[in-house]
Amino acid sequence: MITVTEDYRNAIYAPIRQIDARVHFTLFGETKTYYDDRIIRFNIVEERETVADTLPANEISLTLDNLDNEFNLLSLSNVDQVLASRPTIEIEFGLVYDDSVFLTFYQADSDGESTEWIPMGTFYLAEWKNEREAKTITLVARDNLDYLSNTPYENTMFEGNMYQLAEDVFIKAGVTDYEIDNNLKTVITSGFKEKLDSRTALQHIGIATRSAIYQDRYGIMVIKPFEVLDASSNYLTFPTQDYYHFGSLYPLVTSGFGMRNIDFDDMYEEPEITLDKSIYSVSINIYDGEETREKSYINNEINGRYGDSFSLDNPLIVNDSMADSVADWIIKESKYNAIYKVNWRQNPALECTDVVIIEDGMNAMKQSRIYRQEYAYEGYLTGITESRGGV
């Protein structure tokens, strides 16, 4: 979760709030900032899967006013280099306070209001479309994972640990801002024996080490085991709307997790809840020297045989111990098969992999981990949060 002030935590779920937006657009080394007078609308998709076939890239679709023709593509002298130069788009939401609020480190405006800005991500331009009739421009941008899918990786002579392998992938791809958890140093590996794209290489590293791989809101590529991410959620606080206690913040600890609260007061409708089948069996290929063999696992906790099967082919899994731990992780993750989809007012400080509590419409509050978020802005903020948890 993005670090915010206590004032923000008290105000973000208030019945009346004002959220502004600003865009920092960098083209050929020059950065310009645009506010709501230029922004028409945008949509951000932020996604982090645990066990998946691909690593999802975050994306933004941004529409700006172009009445003054500032963004006319063909007016650029080196138009052929625009996308190749990877122009950046940085998005921020700002929660606005008036001057009656005690200000700590907000940006003061000339009209006596102050704004606490929350980063929403750094994106790299992929599509640029001028709408001539509407006099607007639409920019589509994605994070570094999209770029890494088109960047080959090859180092068949590698010897070291998973931390060094991940670092080698980043360095060879030209990614300089990254954070790799030190737990990966404990896992020895010989790397990959064949050429592959950098995104797939990172996906293999993530599954072999049971780690989340994503680009954070500040543009930094992050690799962290899920148990590290879950541990960091302990003893969090969440805003309450219990006005008898003047909007105080209370620690909430349930089974070792700190939670955020998404309740009916901030939803537009009851959450949609879908139940996925649990995984009944897992098959993993083990690359043991020159030999490749398959090992199968059964989820004995399912009372029945009706469930999904999962097959995993990962060249970094080289022994039974690694296969056992990965299979155990996959089976445990499949227990979180209740998918909650909430259409609500949104909170820009919440990130994917945050653990939250969701009111489910049956007088119960359910714990789940966010895996996908959508932010829709058109002068005001709404969005959809999708999470996985137990029933």
Rank of each mutant, 00 (worst) to 15 (best):
N314Q: 11
E291N: 13
S321T: 10
I331H: 02
I317M: 06
Y306P: 00
K335V: 04
Y306N: 09
A323Q: 05
D313L: 02
R305T: 11
E301N: 08
T292K: 07
E294Q: 10
K332P: 00
D324T: 05
I330G: 01
D288T: 07
S321R: 09
S311R: 13
N300P: 00
G307L: 05
G304F: 11
Y306W: 10
K335I: 02
Y336K: 15
A338F: 06
V318G: 01
I339L: 07
G289S: 12
E301A: 14
K295T: 08
N299G: 03
S309F: 13
D313G: 01
D308T: 06
I302E: 02
V326N: 05
S296E: 15
K341W: 13
G304N: 09
P315K: 13
N337V: 02
D328A: 15
S309L: 09
N314M: 11
G307N: 09
I302G: 03
V326C: 07
R305N: 12
K332Q: 12
S321L: 08
Y336S: 13
S321I: 12
E333M: 13
D313H: 04
S325H: 09
I331S: 01
K295A: 08
K332E: 10
E290I: 02
I331L: 06
S325C: 00
A323V: 03
S296M: 13
G289K: 14
G304M: 06
D320Y: 11
D313P: 00
L312I: 06
A323Y: 01
I302S: 04
E291L: 12
D328Y: 10
A323C: 05
I339D: 08
D313Y: 14
I331F: 02
E301M: 12
A338K: 15
Y340S: 05
N299I: 04
G289D: 14
I330D: 04
D288C: 03
D288R: 11
I302C: 01
P315C: 11
G307C: 05
K332R: 13
R293F: 07
Y306T: 10
N300G: 13
G289V: 07
